[in-house]
Simulated assay, not measured.
Amino acid sequence: MSHQTHRHNREGPCHFSLMSLSAIKRLLLVALPLLMLWALVLWAGGWL
């Protein structure tokens, strides 16, 4: 059985990083799901 070691990329992070996105994209990535959740709550509560 061969075992391959995991090697990190020296030029950048190995995994997806929020800090690699622009500030606007980070804000949208956080705000959009929250807005959708609030819309769902309001709709389910009969306020919309």
Results as ranks from 00 to 15, higher is better:
Met1Glu: 07
Ser2Tyr: 06
His3Pro: 00
Thr5Val: 12
Thr5Trp: 10
His6Asp: 09
His6Glu: 10
Arg7Cys: 07
Arg7Gly: 03
His8Ile: 12
His8Arg: 14
His8Leu: 13
Asn9Trp: 09
Asn9Pro: 01
Arg10Glu: 15
Arg10His: 15
Arg10Lys: 15
Glu11Met: 13
Gly12Cys: 08
Pro13Thr: 05
Cys14Ala: 15
Cys14Asn: 15
His15Gly: 03
Phe16Ala: 04
Ser17Tyr: 03
Met19Gly: 05
Ser20His: 13
Ser20Trp: 07
Leu21Glu: 05
Leu21Val: 05
Ser22Asn: 14
Ser22Met: 03
Ser22Leu: 07
Ile24Cys: 10
Lys25Phe: 06
Lys25Arg: 15
Leu27Pro: 00
Leu28Lys: 08
Leu29Asn: 03
Val30Thr: 04
Val30Met: 07
Val30Lys: 04
Ala31Met: 07
Ala31Val: 04
Ala31Cys: 06
Leu32Ile: 09
Pro33Phe: 00
Leu37Cys: 10
Leu37Pro: 00
Trp38Glu: 08
Trp38Asp: 08
Trp38Asn: 10
Trp38Gln: 09
Ala39Glu: 05
Ala39Phe: 04
Ala39Cys: 11
Leu40Ala: 13
Val41Asp: 01
Val41Ala: 06
Trp43Asn: 09
Ala44Val: 06
Gly45Gln: 03
Gly45Trp: 01
Gly45Thr: 03
